[in-house]
């Protein structure tokens, strides 16, 4: 008799996602869903999804969900959390949403120490709209709006969110992870779980940046995309923990 060793997480609905083949959104969804199940908070959590590739994420997470306007998820989450301070609230945002149009909302939510968890999926490009340059696009990286490669003199340099947010007193936990292999995936899971736990402890604003791939808009296959991320993104966006208020510094 065969034994079931793996099933879809109860933190996800039984719906097929729209994500492209080889995209790491599915893995990151799974990590968030597993975290909710392990902390037994699927029944309590309210999630906020943004405009971008995760615009349909409200269909995929099994908890209550709100769809926010472009960049405004941290403000929407603030409204939810102030009404239900005892409920876990998270946003799940891409780099176009969070770093570009939503820069004001994310920084001020962090500065206020909003007790929410932000899952920031950084793939250095606008995915949903078809591969345009994001604030996180690497210098020299070709996109449909930087067809000759991003020119720092014309459009500036990539923005490092973890480093910036870690400077704010309201931030309790800031970590950058990736999901390119099983080791990094486990580390990402630990960070996401830690962020939710600290939120439950009212420690403050919690932020996990996940470096992610976009094979479709990068124009390479999924395996090449993982390699490209490791070789090109990690040097610009170093992995690691930038802040954990509950860790004894001594």
């Amino acid at each position: 008799m065969s034994k079931i060793v793996y099933t879809r997480s109860k933190g996800l609905t039984d719906v097929e996602t729209h994500y492209c083949p080889g995209c790491t959104h599915g893995i990151i969804h799974k990590l968030v869903a597993e975290t909710m199940v392990e902390l037994d908070i699927v029944e309590d959590t309210i999630g906020v999804c943004p405009v971008g590739c995760s615009v349909f994420a409200y269909k995929y997470f099994a908890c209550d969900m709100q769809e926010a306007a472009h960049g405004r998820a941290p403000a929407v989450a603030t409204g939810i959390k102030r009404v239900h301070p005892d409920k876990p609230v998270f946003t799940y945002q891409g780099d176009g949403d969070l770093v570009s149009i939503g820069m004001g909302e994310i920084i001020h939510a962090a500065a206020r120490g909003e007790k929410i968890t932000v899952i920031f999926v950084n793939n250095a490009i606008y995915g949903m709209t078809g591969g345009q340059m994001a604030p996180t696009t690497l210098v020299g990286q070709k996109t449909t709006t930087s067809p000759f490669g991003r020119d720092a003199a014309l459009t500036g340099n990539p923005i490092r969110m973890c480093e910036m947010i870690a400077t704010l007193d309201g931030a309790a936990f800031v970590e950058r992870v990736t999901v390119t292999d099983s080791k990094s995936l486990l580390r990402a899971k630990r960070a996401i779980k830690r962020a939710f736990e600290l939120q439950q402890q009212n420690a403050g604003f919690t932020f996990v940046e996940v470096l992610s791939t976009c094979p479709t808009n990068w124009g390479i296959n999924p395996r090449q995309a993982l390699t490209w991320l490791n070789e090109n993104m990690i040097p610009v966006y170093p992995l690691g923990n930038f802040k954990d208020v509950k860790v004894d510094k001594a």
Partner: peptide, 22 residues
């Protein structure tokens, strides 16, 4: 009343709070 950083943020906080039932 958490003072918002912008009018845009304020109305989106309203969206979230209204959606949460308040």
């Amino acid at each position: 009343f958490p003072q918002a950083e912008s009018e845009i943020s304020a109305i989106n906080m309203v969206y979230g709070a209204a959606g949460a039932g308040a």
